[in-house]
């Protein structure tokens, strides 16, 4: 299968040249294949968010190269990469604009990558399409399209952020603990929704989570990060045989070292 994302020999340090210098990645290479639904687990500070930040371009690499479909994007600014990469954050407030209505948020997202210009912000002709997309969420948001997003609950906002990030065709969906700020029930709902959207829209996905059950139950590939390295990387058959117990044991093992 084709490589979608390829990280080659990445070095990443924080606070270089000071006493608090921390090396997160050293000669780190990593690949995401087209069609992967990749779950990433790992202890706090193991570099999961940093990995996503490097892929999305929120942080520059110290050395090494990053490719998206064989195109070198190492120097490409974050907003340009966003045309091909959708992202949902742990904080539900980051994925939408709170003072704009649901409709306005969707309309903006609908034109991602296109021309913004001075045409009307909300294209009423697309209303039915937005409605049908909101219905996918099963949250009744299709009846609240003129409410500002700021008044929605975290779970509703996160579901909307997920929908918005996949509204236009993208190559990669990046999820960083996107269910962590939600209560158990909403978190379950958003996870199911994620699985459904990923299947329906057939989009390659990398999902960081601390919920081991999600990591075991969902996705086609499982990675455990530790100290800037992928200590477990299982796909297909091997992945489907992983249980939560195996993962827990692996966790204890690496943290003993």
């Amino acid at each position: 299968m084709a490589n979608l994302i390829r990280l080659e020999h990445i070095d990443k340090r924080f606070h270089s040249g000071t006493v608090s210098e921390t090396c997160i990645f050293k000669d780190f290479s990593f690949m995401i294949q087209t069609g992967d639904f990749l779950s990433v687990v790992g202890s706090n500070g193991s570099g999961k968010t940093t990995l996503l930040n490097l892929i999305c371009g929120s942080l520059p690499v110290d050395s090494g190269r990053i490719f998206l479909q064989d195109r070198d994007i190492t120097k490409m600014p974050e907003y340009q990469r966003a045309a091909r990469i959708g992202r949902v954050f742990q904080d539900p407030a980051r994925g939408t604009c709170p003072s704009l209505t649901i409709l306005e948020n969707m309309s903006l997202a609908d034109h991602k990558g296109g021309h913004y210009g001075l045409s009307r912000g909300v294209n009423r002709k697309r209303l039915d399409y937005y409605k049908s997309q909101l219905e996918l969420l099963c949250l009744g948001l299709e009846d609240k399209m003129d409410l500002p997003v700021g008044v929605l609950s975290g779970g509703q906002r996160q579901a909307l952020a997920l929908l918005i990030s996949t509204l236009t065709p993208i190559d990669l969906l990046v999820l960083d603990e996107h269910t962590a700020a939600l209560d158990p029930k909403s978190s379950e709902n958003v996870m199911e929704l994620t699985d459904r959207l990923v299947r329906e829209k057939d989009v390659t996905t990398i999902m960081v989570t601390h919920n081991l059950r999600f990591a075991v139950d969902y996705g086609s590939r499982l990675v455990m990060m530790h100290a800037g390295q992928a200590v477990i990387d299982a796909a297909g058959e091997v992945k489907s045989r992983y249980t939560m117990d195996d993962l827990l044991k692996a966790f204890q093992q690496v943290s003993m070292e």
């Binding site: 907003y79 966003a82 939408t96 903006l108 034109h111 991602k112 990558g113 001075l118 912000g121």
Partner: peptide, 25 residues
């Protein structure tokens, strides 16, 4: 109320959202 106007409002409210829309905030 135009598209660019909505983007401008997002830029103040949540610059990350503008970035996610592939625009330079």
């Amino acid at each position: 109320r135009t598209r660019t106007g909505l983007l401008l409002r997002s830029a103040g409210d949540n610059p990350q959202f503008v970035t996610q829309l592939a625009r330079d905030q």
